[in-house]
Design a protein around this nucleic acid. Structure first.
Lengths: 152, 152
DNA sequence: AGTTGACCTCAATATAACTTGAGGTTTTAA
DNA sequence: TTAAAACCTCAAGTTATATTGAGGTCAACT
């Protein structure tokens, strides 16, 4: 039984088990591997085997995606995890801080967005050129001709 | 000159002008039209003409997208705008309230996410089955076999 | 009137993030 | 030992959101 039940010392998980435990499809795990987000080794019969920490990696990937972070960005951040050993609490904690900062950024952005949407969309001013929304107070409104709303 | 400078009474804007003023490409305006997010009529030479409020519509579309709302959802919400007349301050204001609620929802979700990411990813517990993250306290962790983190 | 820039349509291409399927091998379990 | 379940690879398909390009028309300026 090559599933999670082996010796706890250096367990090796099958792709099906990881899929079930992490809530993603087998094909997604294959896909993540091609994108270097996770990795595995092969057994004699060429089947993938994973270390248990892959479960945490997948969880982190999904959490980050829920924050609107792309796989590419995620890959870059995961690259900070140690390559040679199993990540420790400290390693994950560092990642967590990283995501936290990103999230705070996004939350702040969204709050500004919300306030602006409220303040301007409903403001009734039909003059686009004079509406505060349409002109920079926040890097918005670009060089070429104004009129760009809420560009990131 | 069929650009924004005509008589202000029922102005008709060209696609190029709208593109420039709203900060999107002409092709994007075409695309939005095929998706029924905006509309236009044609002049004698089969060229698109727009009413000025299209600028506000595009701005709203972009703002909503920045909140992570899909074009389909946006279309549904825009459908609440009057079809027969130019939207008024009140019309836009109603939309604004709608987006505001959505945004508040998302912000709350993100804040929960951030707190959890902080609390769990860095928690050091390596037991996935016992980690609070991996088991429902929030509709997370599904029927089949647990282990699903931060689903929506 | 002619040139140039703006427009038109329609099909193809692009990117992200997966999913599906075909055709074949390995593992598990009775 | 053999059937079923799980796995493998690789190519193609899917959805959302556009962008690009070819081939042709229209409008504005001189």
């Amino acid at each position: 039984m090559p599933v999670g039940q082996k010796k706890l010392t250096e367990a090796n998980l099958t792709v099906g088990y990881v899929a079930k435990r992490s809530g993603v499809k087998v094909s997604t795990l294959h896909f993540y591997e091609t994108k270097f987000l996770i990795k595995s080794w092969r057994n004699n019969g060429n089947q993938r085997r994973y270390k248990p920490d892959v479960l945490r990696r997948v969880a982190v990937i999904k959490a980050a995606q829920a924050m609107g972070i792309t796989l590419d960005e995620i890959k870059n951040t995961l690259a900070n995890l140690p390559d040679n050993r199993t990540p420790t609490k400290q390693d994950w904690s560092a990642l967590s801080k990283h995501w936290q900062a990103k999230l705070d950024e996004r939350i702040t952005h969204m709050q500004r967005l919300r306030d602006k949407v409220d303040g301007c969309i409903g403001c009734g001013c039909l003059s686009l050129t004079s509406c505060p929304m349409y002109n920079k107070d926040d890097h918005l409104g670009d060089d070429k001709s104004g009129a760009v709303l809420l560009k990131n």
